[in-house]
Design a protein around this nucleic acid. Sequence first.
DNA 1: CTTTGATTTGAACGCCCGTTCAGTTACCCG
DNA 2: CGGGTAACTGAACGGGCGTTCAAATCAAAG
Lengths: 195, 195
Amino acid sequence: MARKTGSHSDITGPRIQQAALTLFARHGYAAVSMRQIAAEVGVQAGAIYNYVPHKQTLLFELLRTHMEELLAAADAALAPGADPAAALDAFVRFHIRFHLERVDLVFISYMELRSLEPDNFAHIARQRHSYETRLETILQAGQGVAFRVEDTKLATLALIAMLTGVTNWFRDAGRLSKADVEAKYLAMARALVGA
Amino acid sequence: MARKTGSHSDITGPRIQQAALTLFARHGYAAVSMRQIAAEVGVQAGAIYNYVPHKQTLLFELLRTHMEELLAAADAALAPGADPAAALDAFVRFHIRFHLERVDLVFISYMELRSLEPDNFAHIARQRHSYETRLETILQAGQGVAFRVEDTKLATLALIAMLTGVTNWFRDAGRLSKADVEAKYLAMARALVGA
DNA sequence: CTTTGATTTGAACGCCCGTTCAGTTACCCG
DNA sequence: CGGGTAACTGAACGGGCGTTCAAATCAAAG
């Protein structure tokens, strides 16, 4: 072997992922061409195929990796034995922080599910469901003791929709800091479940 | 004049709108071609241009009309003088009912905003803000008396995200009927604002 | 039944798409 | 410093895109 494997690919590979992420979030998967992604990286379109077999893989890998990181980070942030009230607080804080750091990925995860081929879609849907289960487990554990929730499944969906919605409007230059938003949404989440 | 104006256009025009709506919701604006829309209607692609000047107009008119109907229906459903608690109830019920009857339009309204040209985007954004204001006005009117809300603007965004989220998962064949969902979300909305 | 104009067809316009691949370049190893 | 291969270029492939428009079709009015 002469040239060390990946002497440039260490750089180009991630740059392609990053460019795809930004462009997909801004214009949508279908509206972004391989040539646009390549131009953003400063390379010809053909070069992308040294890193990814199809355009579809580019999207799927972004989402799959995102969901894997979400699940791993959630498990790290949420102590399993904590009492329900503290667990809900931790979940809310974690969810807002994690998602506000990745607004482009969150956006794509919701908007471009329909652009995934069936198998890939099923994979992401399974990961998402696994994440939602973490919250529902907390609500079930506290149901009737720390919380008053009529329907834990519905409360889970309501909470996640409410919390994830922050990524649609939050701006760093806005009226509220991330810490403000976190505190106020925590209060609303507690109220919602009757904590 | 020989043939009566619109002898077929009365039929073809709406059918084009309907086909565009369904296809945009399923595959996304950028991924749907004029030829696909035409095929769905049973017509050649060129015929669409008797009804719409560009593809962009097709999307914009769907969203603009949807938002106009939303605003008009909201004004009809929400009595202006009602007391805050009753007004919130009415808003929640109205929002869920209206949006569950139009899931495709709701989906497009959130996903394809980025596909709108700047002027068209600004128009829809203005309409949406106008709608949100109706809820915030209710929260402000009841703040401290019927409700306990830390931040009426944030509570507005949280409520709308929570309520609109229903359109992402609700299925007629599912565990809960629309009436069930409406009742349970109403309870959660009340709890969220401390009613 | 002919006229008339709304409606639609069908072909064409130039352009961009995702993907492939033979050839070129650039760099590390011996 | 020369050899070898990873990385990349640049052109090409077939095909689909949005849009235009002359010509054909159709249905009611006179």
